[in-house]
């Protein structure tokens, strides 16, 4: 297999396989979770909880409490850099937008590539810091499972290969681009079945707990 065949496979068959597993997996998981339902609340509620759910999504996404901020400064800063960085890299790079355009039929404006490049570097630094933290913090290390390291790698490899292919480093661009696409396909395949599925469940869970608290009249 030469680089052209490889690139064609990851842009074709490989992408098909990954898309099927990804979409199937995500939908399956969401259905599975959402149809579980919960026990009928027999107590009189203090509100519908609907609005509070959304409030909770917002408030839990902002570090408002100074004590928490001080205690978990590292986690919060790296977490923000990582997630904002991922958003910029995935959704604001011109070639990525044109990929979404190819699939969904619509696109949006891109930002300048060197800025995306900067975000990619910051994201990778954040990920490396998170890994270092996980390996050196005794409590965190004790709590970490193999899956934690696996999903770390699943997230890191697409970033580093994307960075290397953009800068034409190490390998011939065709190979590097192919490996980059393949690594994203692996990410897509494992996302629904690992902790990474929080990309889809996080806000649902936040809304749910917020609405529960709303029903009980607890401030979220």
């Amino acid at each position: 297999m030469n680089s052209a065949d490889f690139l064609l496979w990851v842009r074709g068959t490989g992408l098909q396989i990954a898309t099927v597993i990804f979409v199937f997996g995500v939908v399956l998981r969401l259905f599975e979770i959402l149809t579980l339902g919960h026990k009928k609340n027999l107590a009189v509620t203090r509100g519908s909880g609907f609005k509070e759910g959304f409030r909770n999504i917002l408030t839990r996404s902002l570090p408002r409490d100074k004590n928490t901020l001080r205690r978990s400064m590292f986690t919060i800063v790296t977490g923000y850099v990582l997630h904002i960085g991922l958003f910029v890299v995935i959704f604001l790079l011109a070639p990525h937008i044109s990929l979404f355009e190819g699939i969904f039929g619509f696109g949006w404006p891109s930002i300048s590539t060197p800025i995306v490049d900067l975000f990619a570097v910051l994201t990778m630094i954040a990920l490396l810091a998170i890994l270092y933290h996980r390996l050196t913090n005794p409590v965190l290390k004790f709590l970490s499972t193999k899956q934690d390291y696996f999903v770390w790698a699943l997230t890191f490899v697409p970033l580093i290969t994307g960075y290397l292919s953009y800068h034409h480093l190490f390998l011939n661009y065709n190979w590097m681009l192919g490996i980059h696409i393949l690594s994203v396909e692996l990410l897509m395949i494992f996302l629904p079945f690992t902790k990474l599925s929080h990309a889809f469940t996080l806000f649902i869970a936040r809304w749910y707990s917020g609405s529960m608290m709303g029903e009980k009249g607890v401030k979220s």
Partner: peptide, 25 residues
Amino acid sequence: ALSQPAVDVSQTAAYALGAGAVAGL
């Protein structure tokens, strides 16, 4: 564009969505 899929992924995704929904149900 080079970054776009070489094949029709939208349809595949739609089928997978349907299959996922059925399996989920």
